[in-house]
Design a binder for these strands. Structure first.
Lengths: 229, 229
DNA sequence: AATCAACAGATTTTCGCAAATCTTGTGTTC
DNA sequence: GAACACAAGATTTGCGAAAATCTGTTGATT
Protein backbone atom coordinates (compact mmCIF):
# COMPACT_ATOMS: atom_id res chain seq x y z
CA UNK A 1 0.00 0.00 0.00
CA UNK A 2 1.12 3.56 -0.63
CA UNK A 3 0.58 4.43 3.00
CA UNK A 4 3.86 5.56 4.44
CA UNK A 5 3.94 5.33 8.21
CA UNK A 6 4.66 8.77 9.56
CA UNK A 7 6.35 9.20 12.87
CA UNK A 8 4.24 10.45 15.74
CA UNK A 9 6.33 13.58 15.80
CA UNK A 10 5.36 14.38 12.21
CA UNK A 11 1.73 13.70 12.92
CA UNK A 12 1.80 15.92 15.98
CA UNK A 13 3.51 18.62 13.94
CA UNK A 14 0.90 18.45 11.20
CA UNK A 15 -2.03 18.47 13.62
CA UNK A 16 -0.73 21.33 15.72
CA UNK A 17 0.16 23.32 12.64
CA UNK A 18 -3.29 22.85 11.22
CA UNK A 19 -4.99 23.84 14.44
CA UNK A 20 -2.86 26.93 14.89
CA UNK A 21 -3.39 28.02 11.30
CA UNK A 22 -7.14 27.48 11.47
CA UNK A 23 -7.35 29.45 14.68
CA UNK A 24 -8.31 26.64 17.05
CA UNK A 25 -5.68 28.06 19.39
CA UNK A 26 -5.69 31.77 20.08
CA UNK A 27 -2.53 33.84 19.54
CA UNK A 28 -0.27 33.97 22.60
CA UNK A 29 -2.14 31.10 24.19
CA UNK A 30 0.20 28.85 26.19
CA UNK A 31 0.57 25.34 24.81
CA UNK A 32 0.90 23.08 27.83
CA UNK A 33 2.38 19.65 27.33
CA UNK A 34 -0.10 17.91 29.62
CA UNK A 35 -3.02 19.54 27.85
CA UNK A 36 -1.70 18.56 24.42
CA UNK A 37 -0.92 15.05 25.58
CA UNK A 38 -4.52 14.58 26.59
CA UNK A 39 -5.87 16.25 23.45
CA UNK A 40 -3.82 14.19 21.01
CA UNK A 41 -3.05 11.08 23.01
CA UNK A 42 0.66 11.44 22.28
CA UNK A 43 3.63 11.39 24.66
CA UNK A 44 5.90 14.23 25.62
CA UNK A 45 8.75 13.48 23.26
CA UNK A 46 6.89 13.70 19.94
CA UNK A 47 4.98 16.74 21.15
CA UNK A 48 8.18 18.48 22.13
CA UNK A 49 9.67 17.69 18.73
CA UNK A 50 6.60 19.11 17.00
CA UNK A 51 6.66 22.28 19.07
CA UNK A 52 10.36 22.75 18.44
CA UNK A 53 9.78 22.52 14.70
CA UNK A 54 6.86 24.91 14.85
CA UNK A 55 9.00 27.34 16.79
CA UNK A 56 11.66 27.20 14.09
CA UNK A 57 8.94 27.85 11.51
CA UNK A 58 7.71 30.85 13.47
CA UNK A 59 4.23 29.56 14.31
CA UNK A 60 4.95 29.28 18.02
CA UNK A 61 7.33 31.07 20.36
CA UNK A 62 9.37 29.40 23.06
CA UNK A 63 10.79 30.77 26.27
CA UNK A 64 13.25 28.71 28.27
CA UNK A 65 11.63 26.94 31.21
CA UNK A 66 8.32 28.57 30.40
CA UNK A 67 7.30 26.40 27.51
CA UNK A 68 5.65 27.30 24.23
CA UNK A 69 2.94 29.73 23.16
CA UNK A 70 1.10 30.32 19.92
CA UNK A 71 2.98 33.06 18.07
CA UNK A 72 1.36 36.50 18.30
CA UNK A 73 -0.30 38.32 15.44
CA UNK A 74 0.05 42.03 14.79
CA UNK A 75 -0.84 44.61 12.20
CA UNK A 76 2.83 45.41 11.79
CA UNK A 77 3.71 41.78 11.10
CA UNK A 78 0.81 41.46 8.68
CA UNK A 79 1.95 44.49 6.71
CA UNK A 80 5.58 43.37 6.71
CA UNK A 81 4.70 39.83 5.67
CA UNK A 82 2.47 40.87 2.78
CA UNK A 83 4.95 43.44 1.51
CA UNK A 84 7.73 40.89 1.62
CA UNK A 85 5.53 38.34 -0.15
CA UNK A 86 4.88 40.86 -2.90
CA UNK A 87 8.58 41.62 -3.23
CA UNK A 88 9.70 37.99 -3.36
CA UNK A 89 6.84 36.56 -5.40
CA UNK A 90 6.95 39.23 -8.09
CA UNK A 91 10.59 38.28 -8.66
CA UNK A 92 9.73 34.58 -8.73
CA UNK A 93 6.88 35.30 -11.13
CA UNK A 94 9.19 37.34 -13.36
CA UNK A 95 11.61 34.44 -13.57
CA UNK A 96 8.81 31.94 -14.11
CA UNK A 97 7.47 33.98 -17.02
CA UNK A 98 10.93 33.87 -18.59
CA UNK A 99 11.61 30.22 -17.91
CA UNK A 100 8.18 28.59 -17.73
CA UNK A 101 7.44 25.75 -20.14
CA UNK A 102 4.20 24.08 -21.21
CA UNK A 103 3.89 22.29 -17.90
CA UNK A 104 4.07 25.58 -16.02
CA UNK A 105 1.28 27.03 -18.17
CA UNK A 106 -0.76 23.88 -17.62
CA UNK A 107 -0.33 24.15 -13.85
CA UNK A 108 -1.60 27.72 -13.91
CA UNK A 109 -4.64 26.93 -16.06
CA UNK A 110 -5.48 23.85 -14.05
CA UNK A 111 -5.08 25.42 -10.60
CA UNK A 112 -7.06 28.49 -11.64
CA UNK A 113 -9.87 26.27 -12.85
CA UNK A 114 -9.87 24.28 -9.62
CA UNK A 115 -9.89 27.50 -7.62
CA UNK A 116 -12.90 28.78 -9.57
CA UNK A 117 -14.83 25.57 -9.04
CA UNK A 118 -14.17 25.55 -5.32
CA UNK A 119 -15.06 29.23 -5.17
CA UNK A 120 -18.50 28.59 -6.68
CA UNK A 121 -19.06 25.65 -4.40
CA UNK A 122 -18.02 27.30 -1.16
CA UNK A 123 -20.56 28.71 1.20
CA UNK A 124 -19.25 30.93 3.97
CA UNK A 125 -20.31 28.81 6.88
CA UNK A 126 -18.76 25.48 6.05
CA UNK A 127 -15.35 25.50 7.60
CA UNK A 128 -14.48 22.35 5.69
CA UNK A 129 -14.99 23.92 2.30
CA UNK A 130 -13.14 26.99 3.51
CA UNK A 131 -10.08 24.89 4.19
CA UNK A 132 -10.44 23.44 0.69
CA UNK A 133 -10.75 26.94 -0.75
CA UNK A 134 -7.62 28.06 1.05
CA UNK A 135 -5.82 25.02 -0.35
CA UNK A 136 -6.87 25.88 -3.92
CA UNK A 137 -5.86 29.47 -3.40
CA UNK A 138 -2.44 28.40 -2.20
CA UNK A 139 -2.03 25.98 -5.09
CA UNK A 140 -2.76 28.71 -7.61
CA UNK A 141 -0.27 31.15 -6.18
CA UNK A 142 2.37 28.46 -5.94
CA UNK A 143 1.71 27.40 -9.52
CA UNK A 144 2.29 30.97 -10.70
CA UNK A 145 5.83 31.02 -9.33
CA UNK A 146 6.61 27.34 -9.81
CA UNK A 147 9.04 27.85 -12.69
CA UNK A 148 11.37 30.31 -11.00
CA UNK A 149 14.16 27.75 -10.96
CA UNK A 150 15.24 28.78 -7.47
CA UNK A 151 14.84 26.35 -4.59
CA UNK A 152 15.65 29.14 -2.13
CA UNK A 153 12.96 31.44 -3.45
CA UNK A 154 10.48 28.58 -3.19
CA UNK A 155 11.42 27.99 0.43
CA UNK A 156 11.07 31.68 1.24
CA UNK A 157 7.70 31.88 -0.50
CA UNK A 158 6.55 28.87 1.44
CA UNK A 159 7.54 30.24 4.82
CA UNK A 160 5.97 33.64 4.07
CA UNK A 161 2.78 31.89 3.04
CA UNK A 162 2.65 30.11 6.37
CA UNK A 163 3.23 33.41 8.10
CA UNK A 164 0.31 35.04 6.30
CA UNK A 165 -2.32 32.32 6.17
CA UNK A 166 -3.21 32.74 9.84
CA UNK A 167 -4.41 36.26 9.08
CA UNK A 168 -6.53 35.10 6.18
CA UNK A 169 -8.29 32.08 7.62
CA UNK A 170 -10.63 33.92 10.00
CA UNK A 171 -11.54 36.59 7.44
CA UNK A 172 -12.30 33.99 4.78
CA UNK A 173 -15.45 33.16 6.68
CA UNK A 174 -16.39 36.81 7.01
CA UNK A 175 -18.90 37.53 4.28
CA UNK A 176 -18.65 41.27 4.62
CA UNK A 177 -15.12 41.56 3.35
CA UNK A 178 -15.72 39.57 0.19
CA UNK A 179 -18.23 41.59 -1.86
CA UNK A 180 -15.94 44.58 -2.31
CA UNK A 181 -13.56 42.50 -4.37
CA UNK A 182 -13.99 40.22 -7.32
CA UNK A 183 -11.31 37.76 -6.34
CA UNK A 184 -11.77 35.44 -9.29
CA UNK A 185 -11.42 38.34 -11.69
CA UNK A 186 -8.18 39.38 -10.01
CA UNK A 187 -6.76 35.88 -10.16
CA UNK A 188 -7.92 35.47 -13.75
CA UNK A 189 -6.22 38.69 -14.80
CA UNK A 190 -2.94 37.66 -13.18
CA UNK A 191 -3.05 34.27 -14.86
CA UNK A 192 -3.84 35.82 -18.22
CA UNK A 193 -0.95 38.26 -18.02
CA UNK A 194 1.42 35.50 -16.92
CA UNK A 195 0.39 33.21 -19.77
CA UNK A 196 0.77 36.14 -22.20
CA UNK A 197 4.35 36.45 -20.86
CA UNK A 198 3.74 40.05 -19.92
CA UNK A 199 6.20 40.46 -17.06
CA UNK A 200 5.38 44.05 -16.27
CA UNK A 201 1.62 43.65 -16.19
CA UNK A 202 1.64 40.31 -14.40
CA UNK A 203 3.96 41.44 -11.62
CA UNK A 204 2.05 44.70 -11.21
CA UNK A 205 -1.25 42.85 -10.90
CA UNK A 206 0.23 40.39 -8.42
CA UNK A 207 1.69 43.16 -6.25
CA UNK A 208 -1.63 45.00 -6.35
CA UNK A 209 -3.43 41.78 -5.41
CA UNK A 210 -1.29 41.47 -2.28
CA UNK A 211 -1.69 45.14 -1.45
CA UNK A 212 -5.47 44.83 -1.57
CA UNK A 213 -5.35 41.66 0.47
CA UNK A 214 -3.17 43.35 3.09
CA UNK A 215 -5.59 46.28 3.32
CA UNK A 216 -8.59 44.02 3.68
CA UNK A 217 -6.93 41.83 6.31
CA UNK A 218 -5.75 44.88 8.22
CA UNK A 219 -9.32 46.04 8.61
CA UNK A 220 -10.49 42.59 9.61
CA UNK A 221 -7.62 42.37 12.07
CA UNK A 222 -8.23 45.80 13.58
CA UNK A 223 -11.89 44.99 14.14
CA UNK A 224 -12.15 41.27 14.89
CA UNK A 225 -15.43 39.79 13.80
CA UNK A 226 -17.97 38.27 16.11
CA UNK A 227 -17.59 40.72 18.96
CA UNK A 228 -20.96 42.40 19.13
CA UNK A 229 -20.82 43.42 22.78
CA UNK B 1 25.38 37.26 37.42
CA UNK B 2 24.52 37.98 33.79
CA UNK B 3 24.87 34.33 32.98
CA UNK B 4 21.50 32.97 31.90
CA UNK B 5 21.28 29.22 32.17
CA UNK B 6 20.59 27.83 28.74
CA UNK B 7 18.77 24.58 28.34
CA UNK B 8 20.80 21.60 27.25
CA UNK B 9 18.79 21.56 24.05
CA UNK B 10 19.98 25.05 23.19
CA UNK B 11 23.54 24.16 24.02
CA UNK B 12 23.39 21.05 21.89
CA UNK B 13 21.89 23.08 19.07
CA UNK B 14 24.62 25.70 19.26
CA UNK B 15 27.41 23.13 19.40
CA UNK B 16 26.11 21.02 16.56
CA UNK B 17 25.45 24.08 14.46
CA UNK B 18 28.96 25.35 15.01
CA UNK B 19 30.53 22.01 14.18
CA UNK B 20 28.48 21.59 11.02
CA UNK B 21 29.24 25.11 9.85
CA UNK B 22 32.93 24.76 10.56
CA UNK B 23 33.07 21.50 8.67
CA UNK B 24 33.79 19.15 11.56
CA UNK B 25 31.12 16.90 10.11
CA UNK B 26 31.21 16.10 6.42
CA UNK B 27 28.17 16.76 4.21
CA UNK B 28 25.75 13.83 4.07
CA UNK B 29 27.43 12.20 7.03
CA UNK B 30 24.92 10.40 9.25
CA UNK B 31 24.52 11.88 12.71
CA UNK B 32 23.96 8.95 15.03
CA UNK B 33 22.37 9.61 18.37
CA UNK B 34 24.66 7.24 20.28
CA UNK B 35 27.73 8.82 18.72
CA UNK B 36 26.55 12.34 19.55
CA UNK B 37 25.56 11.33 23.05
CA UNK B 38 29.08 10.14 23.70
CA UNK B 39 30.67 13.14 21.99
CA UNK B 40 28.70 15.77 23.91
CA UNK B 41 27.71 13.89 27.04
CA UNK B 42 24.06 14.84 26.52
CA UNK B 43 20.98 12.63 26.57
CA UNK B 44 18.71 11.68 23.70
CA UNK B 45 15.99 14.24 24.26
CA UNK B 46 18.03 17.44 24.00
CA UNK B 47 20.00 16.03 21.06
CA UNK B 48 16.81 15.19 19.24
CA UNK B 49 15.47 18.66 19.89
CA UNK B 50 18.67 20.19 18.53
CA UNK B 51 18.61 18.02 15.42
CA UNK B 52 14.96 18.84 14.78
CA UNK B 53 15.73 22.54 14.95
CA UNK B 54 18.73 22.18 12.67
CA UNK B 55 16.56 20.28 10.21
CA UNK B 56 14.05 23.12 10.18
CA UNK B 57 16.92 25.54 9.55
CA UNK B 58 18.16 23.43 6.67
CA UNK B 59 21.53 22.45 8.11
CA UNK B 60 20.60 18.79 8.45
CA UNK B 61 18.18 16.54 6.64
CA UNK B 62 15.94 13.99 8.29
CA UNK B 63 14.38 10.82 6.93
CA UNK B 64 11.74 9.04 8.96
CA UNK B 65 13.14 6.08 10.87
CA UNK B 66 16.54 6.66 9.33
CA UNK B 67 17.66 9.53 11.45
CA UNK B 68 19.52 12.68 10.57
CA UNK B 69 22.37 13.56 8.21
CA UNK B 70 24.41 16.66 7.60
CA UNK B 71 22.71 18.53 4.75
CA UNK B 72 24.46 18.12 1.39
CA UNK B 73 26.36 20.85 -0.42
CA UNK B 74 26.20 21.40 -4.16
CA UNK B 75 27.35 23.88 -6.76
CA UNK B 76 23.72 24.44 -7.73
CA UNK B 77 22.72 25.26 -4.17
CA UNK B 78 25.72 27.55 -3.78
CA UNK B 79 24.79 29.48 -6.90
CA UNK B 80 21.13 29.67 -5.93
CA UNK B 81 21.89 30.77 -2.39
CA UNK B 82 24.29 33.53 -3.39
CA UNK B 83 21.98 34.84 -6.10
CA UNK B 84 19.10 34.93 -3.67
CA UNK B 85 21.26 36.67 -1.09
CA UNK B 86 22.14 39.32 -3.63
CA UNK B 87 18.50 39.77 -4.57
CA UNK B 88 17.22 40.07 -1.01
CA UNK B 89 20.11 42.02 0.50
CA UNK B 90 20.25 44.62 -2.23
CA UNK B 91 16.61 45.39 -1.47
CA UNK B 92 17.29 45.53 2.26
CA UNK B 93 20.30 47.77 1.60
CA UNK B 94 18.18 50.03 -0.60
CA UNK B 95 15.64 50.45 2.19
CA UNK B 96 18.35 50.93 4.80
CA UNK B 97 19.92 53.71 2.75
CA UNK B 98 16.54 55.43 2.65
CA UNK B 99 15.66 54.92 6.27
CA UNK B 100 18.99 54.60 8.08
CA UNK B 101 19.73 57.07 10.87
CA UNK B 102 22.94 58.04 12.67
CA UNK B 103 23.01 54.76 14.55
CA UNK B 104 22.88 52.81 11.32
CA UNK B 105 25.84 54.77 9.95
CA UNK B 106 27.69 54.22 13.18
CA UNK B 107 27.11 50.47 13.00
CA UNK B 108 28.55 50.37 9.49
CA UNK B 109 31.64 52.39 10.36
CA UNK B 110 32.24 50.43 13.52
CA UNK B 111 31.76 46.97 12.04
CA UNK B 112 33.92 47.82 9.03
CA UNK B 113 36.68 48.96 11.34
CA UNK B 114 36.43 45.80 13.41
CA UNK B 115 36.50 43.69 10.26
CA UNK B 116 39.65 45.47 9.09
CA UNK B 117 41.42 44.93 12.38
CA UNK B 118 40.58 41.27 12.48
CA UNK B 119 41.61 40.96 8.84
CA UNK B 120 45.10 42.32 9.61
CA UNK B 121 45.42 40.11 12.64
CA UNK B 122 44.31 36.87 11.03
CA UNK B 123 46.78 34.35 9.81
CA UNK B 124 45.48 31.60 7.60
CA UNK B 125 46.31 28.69 9.86
CA UNK B 126 44.62 29.68 13.08
CA UNK B 127 41.13 28.29 12.91
CA UNK B 128 40.20 30.32 15.97
CA UNK B 129 40.96 33.64 14.35
CA UNK B 130 39.21 32.46 11.22
CA UNK B 131 36.02 31.97 13.17
CA UNK B 132 36.46 35.49 14.55
CA UNK B 133 37.02 36.82 11.05
CA UNK B 134 33.87 35.15 9.83
CA UNK B 135 32.01 36.70 12.73
CA UNK B 136 33.24 40.19 11.84
CA UNK B 137 32.37 39.63 8.23
CA UNK B 138 28.86 38.62 9.16
CA UNK B 139 28.48 41.60 11.47
CA UNK B 140 29.45 44.00 8.73
CA UNK B 141 27.00 42.62 6.21
CA UNK B 142 24.23 42.57 8.80
CA UNK B 143 25.01 46.16 9.77
CA UNK B 144 24.65 47.25 6.16
CA UNK B 145 21.07 46.06 5.98
CA UNK B 146 20.14 46.66 9.61
CA UNK B 147 17.85 49.63 8.92
CA UNK B 148 15.56 47.98 6.39
CA UNK B 149 12.67 48.14 8.81
CA UNK B 150 11.47 44.67 7.83
CA UNK B 151 11.64 41.86 10.35
CA UNK B 152 10.85 39.35 7.61
CA UNK B 153 13.68 40.49 5.39
CA UNK B 154 16.03 40.20 8.35
CA UNK B 155 14.89 36.64 9.00
CA UNK B 156 15.37 35.72 5.36
CA UNK B 157 18.82 37.30 5.26
CA UNK B 158 19.74 35.38 8.37
CA UNK B 159 18.66 32.01 7.04
CA UNK B 160 20.41 32.60 3.71
CA UNK B 161 23.56 33.54 5.56
CA UNK B 162 23.45 30.27 7.44
CA UNK B 163 22.95 28.46 4.16
CA UNK B 164 26.01 30.07 2.60
CA UNK B 165 28.53 30.16 5.43
CA UNK B 166 29.28 26.46 5.14
CA UNK B 167 30.67 27.06 1.67
CA UNK B 168 32.89 29.89 2.84
CA UNK B 169 34.42 28.45 5.98
CA UNK B 170 36.74 25.92 4.32
CA UNK B 171 37.89 28.36 1.65
CA UNK B 172 38.66 31.05 4.20
CA UNK B 173 41.65 29.00 5.25
CA UNK B 174 42.76 28.54 1.67
CA UNK B 175 45.44 31.10 0.99
CA UNK B 176 45.35 30.71 -2.76
CA UNK B 177 41.90 32.13 -3.24
CA UNK B 178 42.53 35.30 -1.25
CA UNK B 179 45.22 37.19 -3.16
CA UNK B 180 43.14 37.61 -6.28
CA UNK B 181 40.72 39.88 -4.41
CA UNK B 182 41.17 42.87 -2.21
CA UNK B 183 38.35 42.08 0.13
CA UNK B 184 38.82 45.06 2.40
CA UNK B 185 38.73 47.40 -0.58
CA UNK B 186 35.45 45.84 -1.73
CA UNK B 187 33.89 46.16 1.69
CA UNK B 188 35.19 49.70 2.07
CA UNK B 189 33.68 50.74 -1.27
CA UNK B 190 30.30 49.28 -0.35
CA UNK B 191 30.32 51.05 3.00
CA UNK B 192 31.36 54.32 1.39
CA UNK B 193 28.55 54.20 -1.16
CA UNK B 194 26.02 53.29 1.52
CA UNK B 195 27.08 56.16 3.77
CA UNK B 196 26.94 58.51 0.77
CA UNK B 197 23.33 57.34 0.35
CA UNK B 198 24.05 56.27 -3.22
CA UNK B 199 21.48 53.50 -3.67
CA UNK B 200 22.42 52.59 -7.19
CA UNK B 201 26.15 52.34 -6.62
CA UNK B 202 25.89 50.64 -3.23
CA UNK B 203 23.51 47.94 -4.40
CA UNK B 204 25.54 47.36 -7.56
CA UNK B 205 28.74 46.95 -5.55
CA UNK B 206 27.02 44.61 -3.09
CA UNK B 207 25.60 42.43 -5.86
CA UNK B 208 29.00 42.33 -7.55
CA UNK B 209 30.60 41.40 -4.24
CA UNK B 210 28.31 38.39 -3.95
CA UNK B 211 28.83 37.44 -7.59
CA UNK B 212 32.62 37.39 -7.10
CA UNK B 213 32.25 35.44 -3.88
CA UNK B 214 30.02 32.89 -5.60
CA UNK B 215 32.56 32.47 -8.42
CA UNK B 216 35.43 32.04 -6.01
CA UNK B 217 33.57 29.55 -3.84
CA UNK B 218 32.44 27.61 -6.89
CA UNK B 219 36.03 27.03 -7.86
CA UNK B 220 36.98 26.07 -4.33
CA UNK B 221 33.99 23.75 -4.19
CA UNK B 222 34.71 22.10 -7.53
CA UNK B 223 38.30 21.39 -6.52
CA UNK B 224 38.35 20.75 -2.77
CA UNK B 225 41.60 21.75 -1.15
CA UNK B 226 43.92 19.46 0.71
CA UNK B 227 43.70 16.48 -1.60
CA UNK B 228 47.23 16.10 -2.92
CA UNK B 229 47.06 12.36 -3.66
C1' DA C 1 23.86 -18.91 -9.74
C1' DA C 2 20.16 -15.98 -8.34
C1' DT C 3 16.30 -14.89 -5.42
C1' DC C 4 14.14 -14.77 -1.27
C1' DA C 5 13.17 -15.51 3.77
C1' DA C 6 14.62 -15.17 8.27
C1' DC C 7 17.54 -13.87 11.83
C1' DA C 8 20.74 -10.87 14.55
C1' DG C 9 22.62 -6.49 15.45
C1' DA C 10 22.31 -1.65 15.21
C1' DT C 11 19.51 2.55 15.25
C1' DT C 12 15.66 5.41 15.73
C1' DT C 13 11.53 6.50 18.11
C1' DT C 14 8.58 6.58 22.09
C1' DC C 15 7.31 6.29 26.86
C1' DG C 16 7.25 7.09 31.93
C1' DC C 17 9.61 8.80 35.80
C1' DA C 18 12.84 11.84 38.34
C1' DA C 19 14.95 16.35 38.74
C1' DA C 20 14.93 21.24 38.05
C1' DT C 21 12.34 25.32 37.60
C1' DC C 22 8.51 28.39 37.64
C1' DT C 23 3.96 30.00 39.60
C1' DT C 24 0.57 30.75 42.97
C1' DG C 25 -1.31 31.32 47.39
C1' DT C 26 -0.65 31.92 52.32
C1' DG C 27 1.12 33.81 56.37
C1' DT C 28 4.25 36.84 58.70
C1' DT C 29 6.57 41.19 59.54
C1' DC C 30 7.11 46.13 59.46
C1' DG D 1 -2.39 47.67 54.70
C1' DA D 2 1.81 46.57 51.82
C1' DA D 3 5.86 43.91 50.98
C1' DC D 4 8.34 39.95 51.50
C1' DA D 5 9.51 34.99 52.47
C1' DC D 6 8.21 30.49 52.01
C1' DA D 7 5.84 26.40 50.90
C1' DA D 8 2.78 23.62 47.78
C1' DG D 9 1.36 22.70 43.27
C1' DA D 10 2.01 22.84 38.44
C1' DT D 11 5.10 22.66 34.46
C1' DT D 12 9.08 22.06 31.82
C1' DT D 13 13.27 19.56 31.03
C1' DG D 14 16.34 15.52 30.97
C1' DC D 15 17.47 10.59 31.32
C1' DG D 16 17.46 5.67 30.55
C1' DA D 17 14.89 1.74 29.17
C1' DA D 18 11.53 -0.46 26.16
C1' DA D 19 9.32 -0.83 21.67
C1' DA D 20 9.45 -0.31 16.72
C1' DT D 21 12.04 -0.20 12.63
C1' DC D 22 15.87 -0.69 9.58
C1' DT D 23 20.24 -3.06 7.71
C1' DG D 24 23.23 -6.59 6.59
C1' DT D 25 24.22 -11.56 6.62
C1' DT D 26 23.38 -16.31 6.38
C1' DG D 27 21.12 -20.18 4.60
C1' DA D 28 17.55 -22.42 1.96
C1' DT D 29 14.93 -22.88 -2.39
C1' DT D 30 14.17 -22.69 -7.36
Amino acid sequence: MGKTTKSLGEQAHAMLRHQIISGAFAPEQPLRLAQLQERFGIGFSPLREALTRLAAEGLVTSEPMRGFRVAPLSLEDLRDTMETRAFVETEALRRSIRRGDDDWEARIVSSLHALGRQFERSTPDQSESLAALEERHRDFHFALVSASGSRRLEQIIDSLYVGSVRYRMPSLSNRQSAPARDLMAEHGAIAEAALARDEVLATRLLAEHYRLTADMLSKAQAMPLGRTG
